[in-house]
């Protein structure tokens, strides 16, 4: 493991340790007639520590089991939304006819997104998956590709299966007959330029 990862793990461990101390102190210490821990308090602290650690393990195991399914569900929702938007844009482009944008293929090509499926997640893990994010579905379809890739790599080593959208993509050539070219004068008259900036006229 790289030193950065080790430091992150150490930080997480120490934070858990501090928080555990705080929780167990609140729950177990009530008698301040003595400086040392009483027998009851010692027993309580041992039980508290064991219970917290086992709780943490249990929660981690359940989290690791359930999270991939939730991520996959989110992916499918985003994918279906992207497909709907692509279809709507294609219909709009077909209806518009003459008022077609310069590069209509880009709108639909952006919508063809990748849908990584997360597999081979271990059932239990003693370390938390670092840097896991659940991203809300983005507004425009071009952002979906990047956010889905981020979600896909959430659990470290996962297999990404790229599934491209089957929506038909139009090219400029296939739309040539739709657009009637209007004669435009593209020639620019040459004008003699005077001396550039900073030059003194001779």
């Amino acid at each position: 493991m790289d030193p950065q990862g080790q430091l992150r793990n150490l930080r997480d461990f120490l934070l858990v340790y501090n928080r555990m101390t705080e929780i167990c102190f609140h729950r177990c210490s009530s008698n301040f007639n003595y400086r040392n821990l009483t027998m009851d308090e010692e027993r309580c602290v041992d039980s508290c520590a064991g219970k917290l650690i086992r709780t943490n393990h249990r929660l981690m195991g359940t989290y690791v089991q359930l999270m991939p399914a939730m991520v996959q569900k989110r992916m499918q929702e985003m994918e279906s939304k992207a497909a709907e938007m692509a279809k709507a844009e294609a219909e709009a482009a077909a209806k518009a006819g003459t008022s077609v944008p310069d590069n209509p293929s880009s709108a639909i090509t952006n919508a063809s997104m990748m849908s990584p499926s997360i597999q081979d997640i271990p059932n239990t893990s003693s370390t938390a998956p670092n840097g896991f994010q659940i991203l809300s579905s983005p507004d425009n379809t071009s952002d979906i590709k990047t956010s889905s890739m981020t979600n896909g790599s959430a659990f470290g080593e996962t297999n990404l299966h790229v599934i491209t959208n089957d929506a038909k993509t139009f090219t400029n050539q296939s739309l040539d007959e739709l657009i009637t070219p209007s004669p435009v004068n593209t020639s620019v008259p040459e004008t003699p330029t005077a001396g550039g900036a900073g030059q003194t006229p001779s």
Binding site: Y17, M20, T21, C24, F25, C28, S29, F32, R35, N36, L37, E41, E42, V45, D46, A49, G50, I53
Partner: peptide, 15 residues
Amino acid sequence: VAKYLDLHERLGRKL
């Protein structure tokens, strides 16, 4: 403070 530090040390050993 004495109790808190004692408890902290004890929890460290337990962990």
